[in-house]
Simulated assay, not measured.
Amino acid sequence: MKKSTRSFVFHFFTISIGFVMLYPILWTLASSLKPESEVFKNAASLIPNALEWGNYVQGWKGFGGITFGSFFLNSGLVTLLVVIGTLFSSSLVAFGFARLDFKFKRVLFICLLGTIMLPTQVTLIPQYVLFHNLGWVNTYNPLTLPAFFGGSAFFIFLMIQFIKGIPRELDEAAVIDGCSTFGIFYRIILPLMKPTLATVAIFSFYWTWDDFMGPLIYLNDPNLFTVSLGLRLFSDPSSVTEWGPLFAMSIVSLLPVFIIFLFFQKYLVEGISTTGLK
């Protein structure tokens, strides 16, 4: 097979697979511009017969005087706090496991790895009971505060592998210069962890922004709802679902995800590719 033929076959299948993966998003975008009666009349079509921009206007108005912009701000606040808390706690714990020697270190590390394999549903009820007794239900505390004190086992493991690739000679040189343990972390390790920190920040942003289960369980006040719960308000199985505004706001809610990926893609690839390399 000639080189040009192989190149054509490769690009044909790549573009085809890419189109299949993007089709649901393209369909949602097309449906957000269709009148209500046309959404499922010709469902496979990606070209609206008439552009219905009113879906975006109606969707942004929200419900009961609460605009969709409020849901956006709520999601932004929760996501920002979770990202900051995850970066702070996960990097500290990872530094401790990678650089410090302490009692039961191996046992605690095994427990850390075990939590990665533990399904979220197993701890759901005990966590709810705990937060209910603390009076945190219907607040952002259950969604944000655990990130500052527990971090994420997956992110901690990712950072540990990166820190192990940093030469210990840098730590020894810092100690000779009079640097404390925390000084080594803050002045030496943390600046070198920028690729991994960027990767953790991006993944933490994605997972928090898209989270539906957490806000659904802990939030009851519509004024506190995040984007995921705001989208659910458009769907009412007992009456009529507003498909046009629902698809319109779904597209709007995807914009931060696309923007983050567009501008920080190189940091995401760099952080993953360099983790664990020595």
Rank of each mutant, 00 (worst) to 15 (best):
D236P: 11
I202W: 00
Q127H: 10
A174Y: 01
T120M: 15
M213R: 10
D210N: 15
S253D: 06
L231A: 05
I125N: 11
P142I: 04
S235F: 13
V252F: 02
G151E: 01
D210Y: 01
I116W: 04
F234I: 12
A153W: 00
D171K: 05
D177K: 09
V129E: 14
P126E: 07
D177F: 03
L246W: 01
P142A: 02
G135E: 05
W136A: 14
D211T: 05
S228N: 08
L224H: 03
I251W: 02
T120D: 15
F185I: 13
M193E: 02
I125H: 07
P126C: 08
F149W: 09
L254P: 09
D210E: 13
G151V: 05
L219E: 02
E242A: 15
L255R: 08
F203E: 07
Q127N: 15
I156G: 04
D211I: 05
T115Y: 01
P167D: 04
L197K: 02
F162A: 14
K194T: 14
Q127V: 13
Y186V: 15
I202Q: 01
T241Q: 09
F157G: 11
P222L: 03
R232T: 15
L170Q: 05
P256L: 01
L145D: 11
G135C: 05
L134M: 12
F203Q: 06
A198F: 03
E169V: 13
S180M: 10
V240P: 09
G150F: 04
W207C: 13
P126N: 07
L192F: 03
L229Q: 08
F205Y: 02
L254M: 15
A201K: 00
L192K: 10
N223I: 12
V227L: 04
F155C: 12
V227Q: 03
I160H: 02
P245D: 02
S239W: 05
L134H: 03
L170K: 04
L124Y: 05
T115F: 00
L192S: 09
F247E: 06
A198T: 14
A248P: 14
V200G: 01
P215K: 00
V137F: 00
F154H: 12
S204G: 15
F225A: 08
N138K: 05
P126S: 06
